[in-house]
Design a protein around this nucleic acid. Structure first.
Lengths: 231, 231
DNA sequence: GTACTGTGTTGCAGATTCGTGACAAGTCTG
DNA sequence: CAGACTTGTCACGAATCTGCAACACAGTAC
C-alpha cells in the first residue's frame, strides 16, 4: 500500500507544522497550504487522498472552501476534515452540511486526529490512483510523481512522460483535447488539437512495449481516458 | 443549446406570473408551484435545471425546502436560488448555509434575477462534455432504480448519448419529436422529425444489449417518454 | 375489409472523427 | 558541427456517425 497523501490547509505555521510532523511520523505523505488559494493550486496539481481544512483562514473560510470543493465535480469525492476551535463548535452542523466528512475540535491530540483521518479514509472509496499502482506494474512514485515504465524510461519523450503522469493521477475520466492541452502543455500555448492524437499514439506505442495495452482509451467525439479497468 | 427549465416556487400568484413571464421571454422553460408540496410533486415529475424558491411559503419555509432538497441525494445537485424580502435579508447567511446557491432580495429587477440565474447555471452546469463524463459509465439514479449501461462503446453515438442523457434527466414525461429536436439537437437545425425515430431505435437497441428494455416508450400520436418504472 | 396514418426497421452515402506513418524544424550532447 | 532525440504538422486511409429514404408493420376510422 503506497503512502496516503494528506493536504493540510492551515494558516498558522506552528500548528500546521505540528500536524505535518505527526502525520509524517504516522506514514502519511504531507503537503501544506497556508490559505485557500494555495490549497486550490495544490489540488490543481495533484489530488491528495484527504484534505485537512482549518475553519479560520485568511482569504476564505474553511467552510467556504469545503463547500466549493464539494460543489466541483472534480473534487467532490475528496474527503475533507474540518479543524475547528472549541468556540466555533456550535457551527459544526453547518460544517457538516457544507459537505465536510468529519470535523475535529482544537485542541486535539495527534492520536485523535489520526483516528479521525483513518476512519474517513476507510469510508471513502479507493478507486483511483492507488488501485492503479498496485494493480498494474507501472510504478508511480508518489513523492515526486515520477512515472517509471519498467526498469528504465524507454521510448517516452518528456511530453509523453507528462501525459502519462497526468493520466495516472487522473484516471477513469474523459478529458477533451482542449483540457489535455491545458493541463499537460500548460496555459497558453498554441498547439493543434490533433497533435494530441499523435502523442497519444506515441504513449500507447511505448506502453504496448511493456504489455500495457488498452490503458489509453478513445472516447469518440469527446476525448481520451486513462483506465485501469479491463473493460 | 436546449432551453433550460426553471421551477418557480412562490405562493403569491402575481409575483409568480411576473417572474414566469420574464423568464419565458428570456428563453427559459418555466414551471410553477405555489407551495412546497406542489414543488415536490413537480420535481417528482420532471427535474428542472434550476429552482427559484420564495423564502415565505404557506406550508413550509423556503429555507426548509432548500435544506430538504439539498439533503436528498436525488436533488442535491439541483441549483437553488432563494427569493427573500429585504427585511429577511439578515437571514441570508442562514439561507446560504442551508445549501442555496444564491439568493435575490425582493424587490428585484428582471435583469438582476436573470443575471443571478445565469451565473448559478454557469457554475453548476459544466460544459457539455463534462456532463457526458458524468454520465459516462452510465449511471441513472432514478429513485430506487439504478440503471447502468456498461462502460463505453455501448454502440451509442454522441447523438444517442445526448438523447439518453436528456431522457435520464427528464424521465416520466412525454416529449414530442419537436421538443426532442429542440432539446437534444439544440435550437436551429433542420432535421426531419422522422430522424428522431431512427435514433430512438438505435438507443433502444443499445439499451437492450444490457437488458434495459422498455425504458423508451412510444406514446402514439404524441411522442416518446423515458420511464424507469418497470411497468 | 379497405384506406389511411403513425411507427419500426433497414441499408446506404456523405460527413465527421481517429489512427498512423512520414517529415521538417528544433533542441540537446558531445 | 554532427548525430541523436523530440516535437508539432500534415496527409491519407480506416472507422464510425448521421440523417434520410424506402419499405414493412401496426393501429384506427369508415
Amino acid at each position: 500500500m503506497p503512502a496516503k497523501q494528506v493536504l493540510i490547509v492551515e494558516d498558522e505555521r506552528p500548528i500546521r507544522e505540528m500536524i505535518a510532523f505527526g502525520l509524517k511520523r504516522a506514514g502519511f505523505e504531507v503537503r501544506e497550504a497556508e490559505d485557500c488559494r494555495a490549497a486550490r493550486a495544490a489540488l490543481a496539481d495533484t489530488r491528495p487522498d484527504l484534505v485537512l481544512v482549518d475553519w479560520m483562514l485568511p482569504d476564505m473560510s474553511g467552510l467556504e472552501l469545503t463547500r466549493a470543493l464539494k460543489r466541483d465535480r472534480e473534487t467532490r469525492e475528496l474527503p475533507i476534515i474540518l479543524l475547528t476551535a472549541r468556540a466555533e463548535e456550535s457551527d459544526k452542523v453547518a460544517g457538516l452540511e457544507g459537505g465536510a466528512d468529519d470535523y475535529v475540535t482544537k485542541p486535539f491530540s495527534p492520536r485523535e486526529l489520526l483516528a479521525r483521518i483513518n476512519a474517513v479514509l476507510r469510508r471513502s472509496t479507493p478507486t483511483g490512483v492507488d488501485e492503479l499502482i498496485e494493480f498494474e506494474g507501472l510504478v508511480l512514485d508518489q513523492g515526486s510523481h515520477r512515472v517509471m515504465v519498467g526498469p528504465r524510461t524507454v521510448g517516452l519523450g518528456p511530453t509523453e512522460y507528462r501525459m502519462l503522469e497526468f493520466f495516472m493521477t487522473h484516471p477513469e475520466r474523459v478529458y477533451t483535447r482542449d483540457q489535455l492541452l491545458d493541463r499537460i502543455w500548460g496555459g497558453n500555448v498554441y498547439v493543434e488539437e490533433r497533435t494530441i492524437d499523435v502523442h497519444i499514439r506515441r504513449l500507447r506505442k511505448a506502453l504496448e512495449e511493456f504489455g500495457y495495452d488498452r490503458f489509453v482509451q478513445t472516447v469518440r467525439g469527446s476525448g481520451y481516458r486513462f483506465s485501469a479497468r479491463t473493460v
